[in-house]
Design a protein around this nucleic acid. Sequence first.
DNA 1: CACGGCATTGCCATTCAATGGCAGTCGTGA
DNA 2: TCACGACTGCCATTGAATGGCAATGCCGTG
Lengths: 269, 269
Amino acid sequence: MAVEAARSRGRKPSRGEPVIDRAFALLGAFSTSRRSLALAELARACGQPASTTLRLANRLIAAGALERREDGRFVIGLRLWEMGALAPRGMGLRQVALPHMTDLVEATHENVLLAVLDGNRGLIIERLSGHQAAYMPFAATGDIPLYYTSAGLVLLAFAPAMLQEQVLLEPMTMAPDPVPASPREVRARLAQIRRDGFCLVKAVPLSATPPVASAAVPITRGGHEVIAALSVVMHGQGAEPSTLLPSLRAAATAIARELDMADFGRVGR
Amino acid sequence: MAVEAARSRGRKPSRGEPVIDRAFALLGAFSTSRRSLALAELARACGQPASTTLRLANRLIAAGALERREDGRFVIGLRLWEMGALAPRGMGLRQVALPHMTDLVEATHENVLLAVLDGNRGLIIERLSGHQAAYMPFAATGDIPLYYTSAGLVLLAFAPAMLQEQVLLEPMTMAPDPVPASPREVRARLAQIRRDGFCLVKAVPLSATPPVASAAVPITRGGHEVIAALSVVMHGQGAEPSTLLPSLRAAATAIARELDMADFGRVGR
DNA sequence: CACGGCATTGCCATTCAATGGCAGTCGTGA
DNA sequence: TCACGACTGCCATTGAATGGCAATGCCGTG
């Protein structure tokens, strides 16, 4: 009857999650593999009713954080990209590093990577590839595994000990193949990297792909704190990645110098 | 007295602005010239009390949209950069265009620009510069004026008529110098661009800088809709930008083809 | 054609999340 | 010394946000 309908109307107004968190949960539902989402998908991904989702999404559109394509699907908005471009550890770092990275590409015609650590994830900030570059399974602006890539290992080697342990405890998987390394081996490797100041890797990234070789060096701030890793990933057939070290190091120190001159990550105090 | 104090406590809870809007107002307070902000600056920029601002900022930090430097100043967070990198019209477009842009840089050793239209603003998505490249006053990921740059003019030429009129009504200023063009002249120019499919500019970008020359072509989707402009900005001393047109056009069509093949801006329906 | 899924709009009673002021502490730089 | 900024609590207040429901329309699919 009408009584019951009226009673069930407008109940359960909210259960606690702050609006900001909901909003960023919406934005976080997008990923490199899901760049566009329909309303229902968005609602399901966040476990929230469609009505709430639509209202929220429309507000995000008004803010420019989302856009709506002609077919009605949601995509991340240009305004959000613009804001994100102001992140010092993202575009700021990239801005400084880019010219040196293009130099490396011109010299090697291979893949050049710039990666940073965010929490317990390795994140590729920039990836340039020459024309005959080796195959690379990692997307630009995507994650990079910490325990079997040269850039990842460099980041891990100079990370807080707590983070190292945490990562080493996780099961190490390498795409379809298992990682041919034990925590003990990785630990030894990290120590070596801290001694040498670089990392060389020769490996088969995925089954059924040709072998690759790579070299990585850290980029420091203030001469000690490691804030990023610079890496070249090349064809592995009889290649000697150590030949890349001089130019890699030169690029890394040049980038570090420019960063220290800029406002980047000033310590203040 | 205590009575008055108790009375004045906890008044004026909120006056209407949705939380999302407040949050993005905070994020919007950052700019290329203000990449880091202290709490008080942030509060002033948004016209909101410090207590509210701090609470909101902390929630944004929890979401990864903001980060706090060691000196206490706020900066845009890496997570926001990551989300922004998923914007099809930002990083998505850039991803496809980048290899072709680096080719252009290698060939010309000059500045190569990729720009799109967002609302009534021209926005640089990517800017690469060769080593001896001409001086360019526009920042990567910054705005680009629509009425006196080759890329801007191309974007404007294929924009909705309403937007064109709106832009032409605004006072045209070119850094310190006035723009040597009337709305009438610009209008004629836009018509020419629509006919030719390209734009050539020879100009002095700023007083006391050497002259530059530039060429720009549109990048289309589905063969008709213009979604971006590709441009080369070179030294202007006796240079003939029209010589760049063949390679520019080749790059633009290659980019367009790849975009149409990808999910980019699918029209659905 | 009927059906199910999706998008959209509107309404509504219900709260709890968000608010802004204030007080007090601490550190710092002028 | 003083002024300013950052930070932490506390608190009464209230309106923004919520989730359900109903109704409509628009596809594709079976």
